[in-house]
């Protein structure tokens, strides 16, 4: 009888534990909210990040970097993202930030003059601004988190030497003064190959940079200058334009060192049409920008210009990048 009583007690205990676990599971279903005066809420630094760009994945990684840094450093970041063409909305978001008297603004520079003005306005309201991707060194921004364009170009030159074994005629693209970043990249590229006698550079001017413009330009190069057997594309538009033209004119034997990591570019790398692509690290940019802002707000000194990393994607690591992206999607 004692044996039965013991077994019964065990079974009953297990069943009661199962039962008990259910309401306690319900207790755990609750939000992290609390009631009361909204102004008494433990207030972190309020930051606005306004970004305009074409790559959604870039924006995603940028936000991830911003959020991670914000949660680590007790900051709250409101992220406004727009397409490259939505400059008005970008400016309006900056205006909102200034009106809302935020603690700091992080922005990229889709249009130099407008952004310059907002930086001035923010400065007058004691709101510090950090620029990302591009620098406005003549503005009153406190710092800029940018990719080292010269190092970027130099890396591209080294990759080209590696791909062509030091024997190539490379087309590079020059543009308006607005795209000084590309000029610096080109400079780095040229410096990297200057010691190789077999390496030549053909410079082409682009008046209004767009994918279509680059397609047209690449077509004319294929027709008019058959010696050109390689391309250095300093931005995503030039990369996609050149590659699409190559595919169209069956010039896939040309070597392309591109920029960006859009899905299309990654597919071209996987298929061997693009030899390598240099990618800025948006996560690091986002993270460093918040980190620098908090450091500044806490009274620390920060550097005027901070360089972020560059990632090189080739056929060897493209699968990893694609897999990582799939996971994040």
């Amino acid at each position: 009888m004692a044996r039965y009583a013991k077994s019964l007690a065990y079974i009953a205990s297990i069943l009661i534990l199962i039962l008990l676990s259910i309401p306690f599971r319900l207790v755990n279903i609750s939000s992290n909210s609390k009631n009361g005066n909204i102004n008494n809420f433990n207030s972190p630094y309020r930051l606005f990040c306004v970004y305009s760009g074409s790559s959604d994945y870039y924006k995603y990684l940028l936000k991830e970097g911003l959020d991670d840094a914000a949660s680590e450093l007790n900051a709250w970041v409101k992220f406004y993202k727009f397409n490259s063409s939505e400059v008005d909305k970008h400016c309006e978001a900056l205006d909102k930030a200034i009106t809302a008297k935020v603690d700091g603004i992080i922005t990229n520079v889709p249009l130099k003059n407008e952004i310059f003005n907002y930086i001035e306005l923010a400065y007058n309201r004691n709101i510090p601004v950090i620029t990302i991707e591009d620098d406005l060194s003549n503005s009153k921004r406190i710092s800029s988190i940018v990719t080292n364009s010269y190092a970027y170009g130099k890396n591209a030159g080294r990759l080209m030497i590696l791909a062509t074994e030091g024997e190539a005629t490379t087309a590079i693209f020059d543009s308006n003064s607005n795209f000084s970043k590309n000029e610096i990249k080109n400079k780095g590229f040229i410096d990297a190959i200057k010691n190789y006698q077999g390496m030549n550079v053909e410079k082409y001017n682009v008046k209004e940079p767009s994918i279509i413009e680059y397609i047209n330009l690449a077509q004319s190069i294929f027709i008019n200058n058959p010696d050109v057997n390689s391309f250095f594309c300093p931005d995503i538009e030039s990369t996609l334009g050149v590659v699409r033209a190559m595919v169209e004119f069956n010039k896939t034997n040309c070597i392309v060192i591109g920029s960006g990591d859009s899905q299309e570019i990654l597919n071209y790398i996987k298929n061997g049409i693009i030899y390598a692509s240099l990618v800025e690290d948006p996560y690091s940019i986002g993270y460093f920008s918040v980190e620098c802002m908090i450091k500044h707000l806490n009274g620390g000194s920060i550097s005027e210009s901070i360089n972020s990393d560059v990632i090189i994607v080739t056929r060897n690591n493209v699968d990893n990048v694609l897999a990582e992206r799939k996971d994040k999607d």
């Binding site: 939000s31 992290n32 909210s33 609390k34 009631n35 009361g36 005066n37 909204i38 102004n39 809420f41 207030s43 972190p44 309020r46 709250w76 409101k78 909102k96 809302a100 935020v102």
Partner: peptide, 15 residues
């Protein structure tokens, strides 16, 4: 006096 204030709502309200 708001109910269920979290970090997001508090910051939005502060804005």
């Amino acid at each position: 006096q708001l109910l269920f204030v979290n970090r997001d709502t508090a910051m939005l309200f502060k804005n």
